[in-house]
Design a protein around this nucleic acid. Structure first.
Lengths: 107, 107
DNA sequence: CGTTTAATTAACGGATTCGTTAATTAACGT
DNA sequence: ACGTTAATTAACGAATCCGTTAATTAAACG
């Protein structure tokens, strides 16, 4: 099991966050495809993918000379779970804020 | 409005994640209190708090010579919203996984 | 006004991050 | 076995991060 800080670190880079979002939207994709629509080199992308893999955010499988990457849903769930663990805190505050704004609208 | 990658970056350091979690659990606390139960110096903590503040995760108010820090719920909500935006992806996968494991248990 | 308390900013060193180009590994087709 | 395609690892430099100690700012109090 990887640490939550590692998950956050993996998603703290714009290139990596974009990769994860694209893989979620389009599903499994080869590394080369991810390189094409980025403005960095293949080696740079390769190391970003390694970071994502080591953080448990993506997994890799080989097909011919290509490596296909996809998002591991467990990683996403661990983030969601973390926000839910603390939801009692931020939800109440947000509700207060929403109520306050709604009352202001009535003026 | 701050970027989501900045939010993730702020939470990618164990000291900062611990600070945020403690502030959520205990509410507003002075910087000095956060230093005490950490094993880093006051200047180091001060810069961590600055990172959290610039990422919009905490806010600060002054009381006497102390600075009181608290978590901004909006930041937490933005993370929760992000997971919900992609929930359709990971939820379905997790459900499949759960079903699969349940079927295995029956063997 | 000088002192104490609380916290920050300044300055510096070591480690890590992120990009590049060059070299290497891996799988496939002939 | 050889060449091609796809991707990774190696090697290096610039920038950023994170810790430290020393110096500075800010508020409160006699």
């Amino acid at each position: 099991m990887t640490n939550l800080t590692d998950t956050f670190a993996a998603l703290s880079d714009p290139t990596r966050l974009a990769v994860v979002e694209r893989l979620m939207a389009e599903g499994e994709l080869p590394a080369g495809r991810l390189v094409k629509q980025s403005d960095i080199s293949a080696p740079a992308m390769s190391r970003h993918l390694k970071v994502l893999r080591q953080a448990g955010l993506v997994e890799q499988r080989t097909q011919g000379t290509s490596r296909l990457y996809s998002v591991r849903p467990e990683a996403l769930k661990s983030i969601s779970d973390w926000t839910l663990d603390h939801r009692a805190f931020w939800q109440a505050s947000m509700d207060r804020l929403a109520t306050h704004l709604a009352l202001q609208d009535e003026d």
